[in-house]
């Protein structure tokens, strides 16, 4: 049952968006997010939505899959919307009942914030949909590497992320096994209220943690025996390389972002 969980949302396709360098994609996403926060009109959001549509079409990923990425944040979005509608005051009173009232300013900011959140999530999920987790960690390492001078352990961080990604399926499998073992001894994970169910997870989590630590111990030994001594002096099998269209994409984005912000 736990095996159905997919890690990351990467969908492999053969498209120009996928082929872009991971570093460029991370930088572009950052620029676009900053640009998004400088916008204060709905027409700006319309422009961004059109841009996202173009990217999605170029990436050959179905629009449905992209929109699915919005599902987990739906509650957050609705919450934001209602908070703004009921609590932000100003403008005309549209509706009121006893002490509750809805005013036009609230409705406007509510929808404004919601659009912003949606576009924000779409940008970031486009990044993770089109970039494999491995490329992403590599990209992050390169982007952070100038900070090494100030003591940021960039390559160690990326090694940690790589190992985490490697062990997610292994630990899920293990959790599944422990769960079945405990169920065979009469453990009940499914009934009872929320607190009871949370409590029933203890016999699952304790063995899982213990085995995770044991694995970490083994792995550290294995890494050491294969001459791992931190990021210093390491080379890589896959070197990231910029190609001309990476720069073209970056230039296009910078021009778009500047244009939109000053519009």
């Amino acid at each position: 049952m736990l095996k159905d969980i997919t890690i990351g949302q990467y969908i492999a396709r053969d498209s120009i968006i996928h082929a872009l360098d991971a570093r460029i994609k991370i930088i572009i996403t950052t620029i676009l997010i900053i640009a998004l926060f400088t916008i204060d009109t709905f027409s700006g959001f319309g422009f961004f939505s059109a841009f996202i549509l173009v990217v999605v079409l170029l990436s050959k990923i179905s629009i449905k899959k992209v929109l699915k990425g919005l599902k987990p944040i739906l509650i957050l979005v609705l919450f934001t919307l209602f908070i703004h509608i009921f609590l932000t005051k100003g403008g005309q009173v549209l509706w009121s009942w006893k002490f509750i009232s809805i005013e036009s300013e609230g409705v406007y900011t509510g929808f404004f914030m919601v659009s912003r959140i949606f576009i924000l999530i779409l940008f970031t999920s486009l990044l993770t949909l089109t970039t494999s987790p491995l490329q992403l960690t590599d990209g992050i390492e390169y982007i952070l590497s100038p900070l090494k001078r100030f003591g940021v352990p960039a390559s160690e961080l990326s090694m940690m992320m790589t190992i985490a990604l490697r062990f997610i399926p292994t630990l899920l499998e293990e959790a599944d096994k422990i769960m079945k073992a405990q169920q065979a001894r009469g453990a009940d994970f499914e009934s009872g209220n929320l607190i009871q169910r949370a409590k029933s997870l203890i016999p699952l989590l304790v063995p899982l943690f213990i085995s995770a630590f044991r694995r970490a111990d083994d792995l550290a030994l294995a890494m050491e025996s294969r001459c791992y001594r931190g990021g210093e002096g390491r080379t890589r099998l896959h070197e990231l390389e910029f190609r001309y269209y990476d720069f073209i994409a970056l230039i296009i984005i910078v021009i778009l972002a500047v244009a939109v912000s000053f519009y």
């Binding site: 790589t162 083994d218 294969r226 390491r234 099998l237």
Partner: peptide
């Protein structure tokens, strides 16, 4: 399970030589 470092076979095999520079 506890001695493979990377999430792709070739990256794991490359781990040793990468460490050697």
């Amino acid at each position: 399970d506890n001695q493979l470092v990377a999430s792709m076979v070739e990256d794991d095999v490359a781990f040793g030589p990468e460490n050697l520079g």
